[in-house]
Each structure stands twice: as structure tokens, then as C-alpha cells.
């Protein structure tokens, strides 16, 4: 039996249909066609399904779609504005922080939250913060470099008087 779920996804208020057993990630992918969020495991280990729920990074494979009722979801599709990459996306691009790209949306979403909480993380803090995301391609080194670079860019843009870029 499906239920109607009212929620806000990437700034847009909408209604979706889902069975109670539907995982948030499957609703995003199958019902809302937001296929940027991926499923890489079934034990909440890999983080490919990471989205922001009310601004907090969560694994959308471990949240029931019905639990998102009334909440705000941000997916990878909601980051770039008017064709301009979010500074985190831009940094992953510049630092070659992705290869096959499958884990990338999850890493980007986790990083967006991390840098909001900690604008200038050390390398150790970054590696610890990314524990919930698995990448099999990059060996993480360029991901760490990308996070540092994004942090620096975001700090720059947050200086008084500087334009605020991205979400």
C-alpha cells in the first residue's frame, strides 16, 4: 500500500508515492528520477547514497522514505546553481578527486556538511570525516586534496564582503 509523502527536495516542495518499506534512496531514484544518489552496499557502509536531510548528511539507504515526510532533502542534483558548480564539486574536478564517479555524489554531500561544521579541517579530520564513504578508485588522496581545496575556496567566499557562492 503506497502512502503520499510531502517533502521538499532540492528546494522544491513536492508529493511522492511510496510504500512504507521503500527506502529514501529508492524513492529519490525510482520515483523522483534523481539518479545521482547511488546504492553501493546494503549494510550502510559505503556512503554512495549520502544526501542531506535538513542539512545533515545521512545515508538514504538507511532512512525510510516515509520518514522524510515534512523534511528537506538535498541531493547532488541540488548543489550546482544556474550551471555553476558548487565549490566542493569544483574542487573535486580540479583535484581529480574522482575516477569512475559512482561514489562521488556521496563524497560531495558529506564534504558539504563537513565544511559547514568545520571550515578548515586538517588532513586527519578530513579522513576521519569521510569514514562513512568508500571509494575504490582514487586511493582517497585526491579526495582529501579536493576537500582541502574546497575548504579554502569556501573560506575565501565567506570573508566579509565576498560573494557567497553555491548552496
Amino acid at each position: 500500500m503506497t502512502q503520499t509523502i510531502t517533502l521538499n527536495v532540492n528546494g522544491q516542495a513536492l508529493k511522492a508515492q511510496a510504500e512504507p518499506r521503500t527506502l529514501l534512496v529508492h524513492m529519490l531514484r525510482d520515483e523522483l528520477n534523481l539518479t545521482g544518489t547511488q546504492v553501493g552496499c546494503d549494510t550502510s557502509q559505503c556512503g554512495a547514497c549520502t544526501v542531506l536531510l535538513d542539512g545533515r548528511a545521512v545515508k538514504s539507504c538507511s532512512v525510510l522514505a516515509v520518514q522524510a515526510e515534512g523534511h528537506k532533502i538535498t541531493t547532488i542534483e541540488g548543489l550546482a546553481r544556474d550551471g555553476t558548480l558548487h565549490p566542493v564539486q569544483q574542487a573535486f574536478w580540479e583535484k581529480h578527486g574522482l575516477q569512475c564517479g559512482f561514489c562521488t555524489p556521496g563524497f560531495v554531500m558529506t564534504t558539504v556538511e563537513l565544511l559547514r561544521d568545520n571550515p578548515d579541517p586538517t588532513e586527519d579530520e578530513i579522513r576521519h570525516a569521510l569514514e562513512g564513504n568508500v571509494c575504490r578508485c582514487t586511493g582517497y588522496q585526491n579526495i582529501v586534496a579536493a576537500v582541502r581545496s574546497a575548504a579554502s575556496a569556501l573560506r575565501g567566499s565567506r570573508r566579509p564582503g565576498a560573494a557567497v557562492s553555491g548552496g
Binding site: 536531510l53 545533515r56 548528511a57 545521512v58 538507511s62 532512512v63 558529506t110 569521510l130 569514514e131 562513512g132
Partner: peptide, 9 residues
């Protein structure tokens, strides 16, 4: 405990 995302939830 867990990881960042698990701790958030």
C-alpha cells in the same frame, strides 16, 4: 561510533 552520517541519524 559508526561514521559521520550514521551519527547524524
Amino acid at each position: 561510533i559508526g561514521d559521520r552520517q550514521v551519527r547524524n541519524r
